[in-house]
Structures are given as C-alpha cells and as structure tokens.
Design a protein around this nucleic acid. Sequence first.
DNA 1: TTATTATATCGTAATATTGCAATATTAAAA
DNA 2: TTTTAATATTGCAATATTACGATATAATAA
Lengths: 110, 110
Amino acid sequence: MGASKTDHFTDEQNALAVLAKALGHPARVAIMDYLLKVDTCICGDIVNHLPLAQATVSQHLKELKNAGLIKGNIEGTAICYCIDETALENLQRYFASISEALKKKRTNCC
Amino acid sequence: MGASKTDHFTDEQNALAVLAKALGHPARVAIMDYLLKVDTCICGDIVNHLPLAQATVSQHLKELKNAGLIKGNIEGTAICYCIDETALENLQRYFASISEALKKKRTNCC
DNA sequence: TTATTATATCGTAATATTGCAATATTAAAA
DNA sequence: TTTTAATATTGCAATATTACGATATAATAA
C-alpha cells in the first residue's frame, strides 16, 4: 500500500505530525523565517525571495495554511500571509515539555 | 523534476527541515513518545507497541536515526534505541525563539 | 470594457515515502 | 555447530510530494 494509517495513532500524535510534516521542507521553513522577519506580512514578495516558481511557492503556502501554520487575508489583488501563533505555541509547548521530561529522566542508556 | 533544491536554502533551514520531516509521520512521533515514556529504552518492544510490521518500524527507526533524533546501542541480540537530547534541545530552542519573536512583534495584520 | 497584476489551480513528469513479505544478518543459546 | 531470537535489508506496489509551465481567477487600473 504505502498510505499511512493515521487512525492507529493518537490525535496528539497525528496533530504534531501534520505540523512537523509541513515544516519538513526547507522552502516552507524559509517561508516561515521570512514571514517572521518581515514587519508587514507582505505577500507576493515571498515568491521573489525564494528560488522557486510562483506556482510552487503557492503550493507550499497552501500546505502551510492547511497545516494551520499560517493564515492569509485578501488585500485587494494581493494576499497577506502571516504566521498563526497558536500552532507555533503548540509546537513550542510540545518541545518544551519533552525537554523537561528528558531532564528529569537521565536514564542515559545510550 | 520534483527534487527539492536544498542548496538554495540556509544550513539552518535545511537542518530544521530534516528534523521536522523526520517527525512528520505519526508512527515516528509515536516512537518518540514511547521512548520518552519507557524507562529502559527497550527496543523491539517498539514493534509490539505499534500497529505496523517489523520491517516498517525498522525503517522508521532508521529515519529517526538518520535525522539525529534517536541513537541506538547494540545490546546482545537486541538494540537499544533512545532519544538524542541534542536534537530535541535544538528543536526546543528554535520554537522558543520563534515564540519570543512573535510576542515582540504584534503586527497582527491577519 | 479592457488591460494589468497577484495569486491559485491544473496537468504532468520526476522522485520520494510508506508498507509489507521475504530474506539476510548477527549474536546469544542449546 | 545448529538453532533461535532480534533487527536490518531488499524488492516491490501503492501513493504522495515536488516542481513547473500553462492557464484560470479575481481585483484593481486605465
């Protein structure tokens, strides 16, 4: 087959996988970095900023949006994309809690 | 084509994408969760714990290892896998710094 | 209305991922 | 040495991702 059986995992596991997968491509990480750096969350500039065709960037933006990492607002002809803070807070909390758990552990068998 | 042009992005962006991609599958998130929960980082238990064939789990473990998220030690016939704390600290730092940056921003145009 | 501009979608080719059965490997146990 | 147990690798089918040119859409400008 080759399809992943998402129904065998917990909602939390699936949710994290969705976010991580969306960040699992350097172009999408670059888009996030760019949105974070730019003051006005300008839009089509992203295309000029990346070494990819407009169609490809649009596709990456769509995936980030589907994953909930960014949101977009229509502004005339342009569209204003920016980071969805909720998703990033979730990621931050997840890794913070893992780091906490690791510090408490110290089983250190490897 | 379809190949990603990793050379067009920064080392940091590529490094994060590698880690995120490895976590971009619920089975691999479940493996991480399991390794975190279990005291002794026992090994083939992972196979019993997941709804996937042994070969598939082995493949997922390989990917987590290649990404640097886990390490493995040979222990007789078995292999002891456990979380690589360095990678998780990097992830934690990355998302913590993004959250910080977002708090300072408050441009809130979307 | 007719450009023009910004973005999205479609179609398609190349490649990567996922999953598993079968088989190989490797180390301890008999 | 032979068996057994644990894990890895191979081969392969199904599916997903990535990328881009071409085209569609939608809103402003002329």
